[in-house]
Simulated assay, not measured.
Amino acid sequence: MEMALMSGVRENKCRLRRFLAIILCYGVMACAIRQSENAGINAETQLTRAQWHARLNWDVSDCPLASPDEAGPGVVMHGFGADTRIIEVQCERWAYQGSYLFYLDKDGAITQLSFEQFEAPDAGRLERYHSALVTGLPSVIADEQALDVFRKYRGIGDCGQFLRYRIEAHAAVLKQLRVRDCEALPADKPIDTQEWPLKNPDEEK
C-alpha cells in the first residue's frame, strides 16, 4: 500500500513538472513574440518623414514632405484590432486644426483611406466631395472601429462639423454627420458636438 502511494505521489510530481515545463515554454514563446512585435513597432517609430513617405508614397501636393511637427516625423500609429493599425500622417498644422492622411495597415498590407466630406460655402448649405485629405481634429476610436473628425468653423469650436466614420473592410464609411452653423457672435464656450443638428448625408449635394 505504501509503495503504491509513493508511486502515485512520484507520478503526480512528474505530471506537475511536465505541466510547469509546458507553461514555461509557452511563456517564453509569448515573450519572444511580444519582443519581436515591439522591436518592429520601435523600429517604425524611428522612421524619418522621408522614410515614411517612401513607404506610403503620398502626394506631396496634398501633404508636404516637411513635417509640421518640429519634434518628429508627424506620423502616429494607432492599434486597431488584431494585426491591424491606423497610420495617421499630419500634413499641415494651422491655428486650431490641421490636415491629415490615414492609412489602414492590415497584416502588413497598407491601404490609403478616402473620406466622404462636405464643404460649407454658405450657412445651411453643404457640398459633398471625396478626398483622402481630412481637415479638422481627428480621433481614432479603436474599440468602436471608428474615426471621428471635428471640423471647426472658428477657433472656439461652437460651430462646424462632426463626422464619424466606421472602418469597414478597407474603406471609411460615413455613419454620422452633425453640423452647426455659426451665429453672428461666438458662444461663451464650446458646445457638445453630440447636441448639434444631425444631418442625413444622402440628402446633401
Score class of each variant (00 low, 15 high):
F80P: 08
W94A: 07
L101V: 04
L113C: 09
A120Y: 04
A95E: 13
Y103H: 02
T111K: 14
F115T: 05
R93D: 13
Q117D: 02
Q90A: 12
L101Q: 04
L104S: 11
S114D: 10
K106S: 15
T84N: 08
F118G: 06
T111N: 14
A95G: 06
Q90K: 14
C91S: 04
R85F: 10
E92Q: 13
T84I: 08
D83N: 14
S114L: 00
A95F: 06
G108R: 10
V89K: 02
D83F: 13
D107F: 11
K106N: 12
Y96P: 09
S99D: 04
E92Y: 02
L113M: 07
C91K: 04
G81F: 04
L101S: 02
E88Q: 15
A109V: 15
D107V: 11
G81Y: 02
L113F: 03
E88D: 11
E116T: 15
E119D: 12
E92H: 07
R93N: 13
T84R: 13
Y100A: 00
L104E: 04
G81M: 05
T84Y: 00
C91R: 07
Y103I: 00
E88G: 05
A120H: 14
A82W: 12
Q112C: 02
R85W: 08
D107E: 15
Q97D: 14
